[in-house]
């Protein structure tokens, strides 16, 4: 909502593309739909609920979902970034990171490293690494 996810995604992209052979594309899910595998980055609102726009997106496009990052606010304690847990459980994908607002340098490292690893795994397969995408959902 306040642009935290967008900023985090841009930071991760810059970091991941510093590794040779890694290409990351950031998509705004309100405007575009990823065609291959992707990492979903979403915000959390309220008591850790999955935002409606994110839920609607996943209902249709969960096939390529490979992981999730949730951004939230540390004030919520046990419910902090809970949307990520819900999505992780429901779709059987790892919660790659739970970040406070737009995250820290360590968070960007974690997610960039995960993306790089995914790209390597995908390279071994004939589908090609350009299918690996990073995407995020925001409240519209």
């Amino acid at each position: 909502m306040t642009g935290n996810v967008r900023r985090f995604a841009a930071g991760v992209q810059a970091l991941a593309e510093g590794t040779p052979g890694t290409r990351v594309e950031v998509l705004d899910l309100r405007k575009a739909v990823p065609s291959g595998n992707f990492l979903l980055m979403t915000y959390t609102f309220g008591s850790g609920g999955v935002p409606e726009t994110t839920a609607r997106f996943l209902a249709e496009h969960a096939a390529g979902l490979r992981g999730v990052v949730s951004s939230g606010s540390f004030h919520w304690g046990a419910n902090f970034g809970r949307a990520g847990d819900h999505i992780s459980e429901r779709y059987g994908v790892p919660l790659v990171a739970r970040i406070n607002k737009s995250g820290t340098a360590a968070d960007r490292q974690t997610v960039a490293a995960w993306l790089t690893e995914q790209c390597r795994n995908t390279l071994a397969r004939p589908t090609g690494f350009e299918d690996m995408r990073s995407a995020y959902g925001t409240l519209d």
């Binding site: 306040t2 935290n4 406070n100 607002k101 820290t104 340098a105 360590a106």
Partner: peptide, 16 residues
Amino acid sequence: FNVLADNLNLDRAFDD
């Protein structure tokens, strides 16, 4: 203060 900067979409003033 860093949370504040994130909310306002401004640069964080302090280190992590």
